[in-house]
Structures are given as structure tokens and as C-alpha cells.
Design a protein around this nucleic acid. Structure first.
Lengths: 219, 219
DNA sequence: GTATTATTAGAGTATATACTCTAGGGAGTC
DNA sequence: GACTCCCTAGAGTATATACTCTAATAATAC
């Protein structure tokens, strides 16, 4: 593998593990057993590394959230979208942790991320529309659908932060992908009241699969 | 005012304005035109300052979210809770921005914040119960109410991050309390499908008051 | 083979950051 | 006046961080 790619991979790994704030360019170089000079030969600065990692993340999510216009949406599609989005969040989980700082330090990233958010919101809206067309949920006024899409986005992007801050994982940072995917339960909760009688049971069963085993230890 | 209190006040102000990560103890001292030695006479380290600020924040929210058990809940009560919570978020807005890092660097804070979250979730659950008792929303199974409370919490605590990252405020950090309170619109959106016929119109009118004027500039 | 280009090592640097240490001032008390 | 206690100044320091610079080595082109 090319050094450049190794740097990106190691950075992502370290960022995810320890948080971007706790990982310096020297750490990354040391982790790869290369010199700082080598790292700076491939990237102008830390921001550039982060930006490239974001581009990968963006590409991944854009790929998953490419909603086909031609055919009707099934429950399997819905499951796939949800699973994929949470997989993406997991693989690039450092990103949302320090998002505000990252956007403040890199105007390109700020601009791109804003557009990325808008595309995601658009995809969520589309999914809602196709769910309504497929008779999974009831039709809703545009205004309500818009606000609901935004709430879905808020729940999706911040479920992990909730787990990491409110959960009882003091010891090691033992967050797992399985726990993260319990966010799907929360997302589907938003749709519960809108389910059609025809689909209610099936969606509720799907939701049940992601139900947290035990929410949290008592204080 | 005592120097100690001045330090807390200036720290909060600078943290809110520039983000905790961008504010050093030297900055705080310089801002107050006192010496670093003086600052460290009053606080052992930066973490201690942050912890004390958190205690203030905690006290404020606990005070607002003290749900009286004796009388029925009114729409005015609900408005008060929502307004108060968003006021609190605004006054201590630096806190959620770097939350994960802060909790990682201070075990006291981690423990206290977790309990704080649980208390807030409890208060939200209570409010839902009292809204059901008052006939504002329909009764719901415990399991659904629990998941809904959590979603309310997610929307409340992350609405600001959404505004700061997705909104088109590149130039100056021109986020206003008014914009922040549009989060109330999002929270009430969660309750829309559960409103009783008796209250539906009134709650929808309340929600409309917080409606964003124009959501976001097109890309 | 030689010239050129791409890659790498590794020492080094300017700046920042959190924090320490010593000396002393001011106010009250005896 | 001397003693004490609280508070403050300000120089100073150890460490970290992002990044640079030079020289050398490997790869490729001709």
C-alpha cells in the first residue's frame, strides 16, 4: 500500500480510537514508523488529512443514499439504508465528535459538509416520500415531513454522542457497532405513529430487532 | 465581584464565544487583566473551572425541570419548560460542543453528567406523563414513551450543533437565541402525531410560533 | 549509465499551553 | 510596629505540537 494511503488509514484509525484532538501528526507518523518529514511530504497539514478522510466518508454515504427513482421502496431497502448509514457513522466515528472545531478550522470542509448535510436531508425526505408511496407510512403535509426528516437526521448523527456520554462505559471505550445500531430503534420510533395498518406489524417487528437489551445502569 | 467569580464568568463568556478548545488559561487571565499566577491561586487547573461552570449549569436546569407533582400540567408549563431548557443551552452553549473531550478529561464530570442526563430524561418522561394526564397527548405504552423521551433529549441537545454546522453562517458566528429556540419547533414536531383533538389546534399554534422563517440557503 | 524525479529520514524550530514559584502588597489585629 | 492571612504579579519552565529543512536514498526515464 502507498504511504499516502497508509497515512490516511492510520489517521482514521487513531482518530476513531482516541479522538482527533488527542492525535497529533507526530503520533500518526510514529504509529506508522515513518518520519514526520515523510508525513508532511504527503500532506501539507493535519487539516488536509482530515479533509481527505471526509471526502471518503462523503463518497461512502452518497453511494449508499443513492435512492433509485424507478422502483418502489421495500422494507428491505429501508433496513439497508439504516444499516448502511450507521455503518458509515461507525467507520468515521471520530468525525462527528469534533465536528464544530473541524469546520471552524477548514472553510472547505465547512462548505462541503453543509452541502453534504443538505444532500442527506434530501435523501431522508425522498425515503419518506417513497415510504408513503409504498404504503408503509401515511402521507404527510410537506411542512411536517420536512421537520420530521430533520429530526431523523438529528437522531442519527447524535445517537453515538449520547451513547458515549450518557452510557456507563467508564472503563474502556467499549462502544460497539451493535450498540450503535440501537440508534435504528430510535429512528424507527419517530415513524411509529405514521405507520399504515398494512405495515405496522412488520415495521414494529423490524424495530424490535434493534431494541436495546438494557438501556443503562441505574445511578 | 470576587476574582474567583470573575474568572468563572469570563471563562464561560470566552468558552461560549470561541469554544473551550480555543481558550487557554492564559487567555482567560489576559482577558481579565490578571496574572496567570492569580488564576491558578483560585483554581487548580482548567478542568476545575469547567467543572464549576458545569455545576452552575446543572443547578440551573435542575431548578427549571423541577416538575411539581401536585397540579395538572398546562400548555403554559410546557412552554416554560421548553423555553427554559433552551435558555440554559444558550447560556452554557460551549458545554455540549466539546462534551466528549470534557468528559474524557474529568471523571467527576463524566459521572455527574451521566446522572444529570438521567435526571433530565426522567423529567422529560414525567412531562410526557403529565401531558397525557392533562389530556394534551394520548397515553402511550411505557416502552414507546421511553424511546420518545430519548428522542426529545437528542433533538434538544443537538439542535444547536446542527445550526452551527449546517446553517449558512460562515462569516461571523451569528447564531442567535431566537434561532436556537426554533429547536422548540422540532421538539413539538415529535409530539404532533400524539396530540388529542381537544388540544391539537392550540399546540399546533404554539409550535407555529417557533417555526423557522427560512430554513436554509440553497446550495 | 546517467539524469531526473519521487520518496524518506531525522534533526530541528517557533510557538503555544498548562502550570509553578517566589516575592511581595494590603488589610486587619494585637 | 509586627504578625498574619488573603490575594496578586510576573517571570519562568517543561512539555507538546505542527511543521520545516537538508541530505540522502530509491525509483524511473532516457
Amino acid at each position: 500500500m502507498k504511504t499516502r494511503d497508509k497515512i490516511l488509514l492510520a489517521s482514521l484509525e487513531l482518530f476513531n480510537e482516541r479522538g482527533e484532538r488527542n492525535v497529533t501528526t507526530n503520533h500518526i507518523a510514529a504509529h506508522l514508523a515513518i518520519s514526520p518529514g515523510n508525513l508532511y511530504y504527503h500532506f501539507r497539514n493535519k487539516s488536509d488529512i482530515i479533509y481527505e478522510i471526509f471526502l471518503e466518508y462523503e463518497k461512502l454515504v452518497d453511494f449508499y443514499l443513492d435512492i433509485p427513482g424507478s422502483r418502489a421502496l421495500t422494507l428491505e431497502d429501508l433496513t439497508f439504508y439504516l444499516e448502511s448509514v450507521f455503518d458509515g457513522l461507525w467507520s468515521y466515528r471520530f468525525f462527528h465528535r469534533d465536528l464544530e472545531y473541524l469546520l471552524d478550522s477548514d472553510p472547505r470542509l465547512r462548505r462541503d459538509y453543509r452541502e453534504f448535510t443538505n444532500r442527506c436531508l434530501g435523501a431522508i425526505r425522498q425515503i419518506f416520500e417513497k415510504m408513503a408511496e409504498a404504503g408503509i407510512i401515511e402521507h404527510q403535509p410537506v411542512e411536517l415531513r420536512e421537520a420530521m426528516s430533520l429530526n431523523v437526521w438529528l437522531v442519527i448523527t447524535n445517537w453515538m454522542a449520547f451513547l458515549k456520554t450518557a452510557h456507563a462505559l467508564d472503563d474502556d471505550n467499549s462502544l460497539t457497532l451493535t450498540e450503535l445500531k440501537q440508534g435504528i430503534y430510535q429512528v424507527l420510533t419517530l415513524e411509529v405513529p405514521y405507520l399504515t395498518p398494512a405495515y405496522r406489524e412488520r415495521v414494529m417487528a423490524l424495530r424490535e430487532k434493534y431494541r436495546p437489551v438494557m438501556m443503562q445502569a441505574e445511578a
